[in-house]
Design a protein around this nucleic acid. Structure first.
Lengths: 166, 166
DNA sequence: ATTTTACGTCAGTGTTGTTGACATTCCAAG
DNA sequence: CTTGGAATGTCAACAACACTGACGTAAAAT
């Protein structure tokens, strides 16, 4: 891959292969930090990240359908179903048959589910807040811009649609 | 970003739970984008992310030992060993007994290993470069700052030690 | 000589992803 | 109204990859 940074001069120095590799590794280590706290908590409940993701997005969009969740999470419905089944059995998630379309199942967190979601997101938010505080608003704005630019277009669209107006 | 730190004396508005949640979700979707290209490539070789990580860090630090790699990757030796064994069997990685300390195994990429590493990192760098280009150097600087702040201290130290001087 | 370190391996388990098969429900064409 | 296909979700079996625990070998450190 051409080292196009050279041709542009000083202004593009942040695009050297070396800089990009640092960015890649930073992403790797940061994501581990990002998931470390929830992972520890989930371990106590013998749940995994898949449970966390399901709980998170059900919390964000109560009443969402299984199919909806599939699109967001990007896994097979069978994989999601296993996770949902345990969450339902354990009384953290409630599944209601759709009234308009009885094929659909609408998903809601129970009180216990809300409690777990809070425990997880409190921990994750704390890490995010500490990081944000350490670097200041301008850096945070840049952080968010790069993350958005890195998403697959399909999910970027979804993400942006959430930003304004929920 | 609709709200900003400047408005109405709310210097900390970017720390609201809502803003933090957006950051968390951005991280989730971005990381998926970040791994999407390598995942597709690895699929052709029937390798997984674990192989990618091993290949990446052996490439970055040729001659690194198994123990070293364990520390960086944060997995058990059994887990790493399974991956290394297939990479060695497939002729992508070479394991040489240490000369100074014969207990150690020093790991190197073979020609084939270097080729795979290049294929993977070209794809990943391209995504990173496109994202960087889309947002500009200031945003990238902020991105990097937040990522560093989000790492576990132990790995942040390691990461920073790589930044200067390799 | 004994202990510790580095590495490899075998066995067992759990989470999470996959495909394949199947039941239910909706809807539209005949 | 019936029927066939599409959509939604469930169950079963399997693969990848993480984990723990136990054991073995070799070499370095004490």
């Amino acid at each position: 891959m051409a080292q196009d940074a050279r041709s542009g001069g000083e202004a593009l120095l942040f695009l050297t292969d070396e800089q990009l590799r640092k960015g890649i590794e930073a992403m790797f280590f940061a994501y581990r930090g990002f998931t470390a706290d929830p992972d520890r908590i989930l371990n106590n409940y013998s749940y995994g990240r898949a449970h966390h993701r399901a709980v998170h997005f059900i919390h964000r969009s109560p009443g969402t359908t299984v199919n909806n969740l599939l699109g967001i999470l990007g896994v097979t419905k069978q994989s999601l179903n296993r996770v949902l089944r345990t969450l339902i059995e354990d009384g953290l998630v409630e599944s209601r048959v759709g009234t308009r379309d009885k094929r659909e199942r609408h998903l809601y967190l129970t009180e216990a589910g809300i409690a777990l979601e809070r425990e997880l997101s409190d921990a994750q938010r704390k890490r995010m807040r500490d990081a944000y505080r350490a670097v200041g608003p301008d850096a945070v704005a840049g952080f968010r811009k790069v993350l958005e630019a890195m998403m697959e277009p399909e999910y970027r669209r979804y993400f942006k649609s959430l930003k304004e107006g929920e």
